[in-house]
Amino acid sequence: MTSARPWLLSAPALVIFAVMLLTPLVMTAVLSFNSFDFYGGIKPTFGFQNYADVLSDSYFYEIFLRTFLIALATTVIAALIGTPQAYFLLRMHPFWRSLMILVVLGPLLISVVVRTLGWAILLGNNGVINDALRSIGLIERPLKMMYTSGGIVLALVHVMVPFMILAVWAALQRQDPATEKAAESLGARPATVFRRIVLPQAMPGILSGSLIVFSLSASAFATPAILGGRRVKVVSTTVYDEFLNTLNWPLGAAIAVILLVSVLAIMVAWNKLVEKRFAGVFE
């Protein structure tokens, strides 16, 4: 086998990626160093002014903080729901399991816009949840759920939890089912079996699932745009506004680059941590 063969086979994909991915990303990085004024547009200057603007403005701080807190909350809740659900899925009767798989994975294939529309109908001041609570007399004034971070987290959990379940499920399937029986035969109750035997073996899946959920949540666009609007801005909706409304592309590019770098940094740090923790225990 010659060494040129794999490169020849990958050449078409490589060319497309070089032209369509690497070039645009480099151009965006360059753009973030340019300057902008409202009359002259983008100026091909080179400076750190946009970064300085973003990093020194408490308005942007708040947006970044909100974005990462929303992502963190979404990740934690998705892990708390997704982990037991993946375990229950594994133990289900095959018929119920295949039905449940459709329920869990099906929404992944339906546009986020459609799913978020559903949440908008549920969460609105005159939405399904508030109407129901009012009609049974539990509340008098509607609970404010639209245009809140809480509403965004709720809808994001709905979008993200399938990824968590998939990751945990993959880890659980690598586990030897006899380990649960072994623990049981040694005297462990079901809750102990879950906590001491299943959970530690699911941990690599929970950690990799958390990474996926966190990075997707931190850059989610449709859900915060529809449920948060202009009132609850996150990084991606801010970038969108800079590009398509304010037209300050260099500033938008700088915000996007900061988002990209911080997400990548978190991923690398997380992977390092996981590798260190599980060296030797799992392959």
């Binding site: 794999p6 990303l25 666009f221 590019a253 996007a256 990209l260």
Partner: peptide, 29 residues
């Protein structure tokens, strides 16, 4: 082969780059 892992990482990288970043990059390009 030499460079295999890098090649695979490149082809999977659109999954790790935030989509909003991809959006503005494509727009600029």
């Amino acid at each position: 082969f030499a460079g295999r892992d890098a090649l695979q990482a490149l082809f999977l990288s659109p999954l790790t780059v935030p989509t909003v970043v991809l959006g503005i990059a494509f727009l600029r390009f």
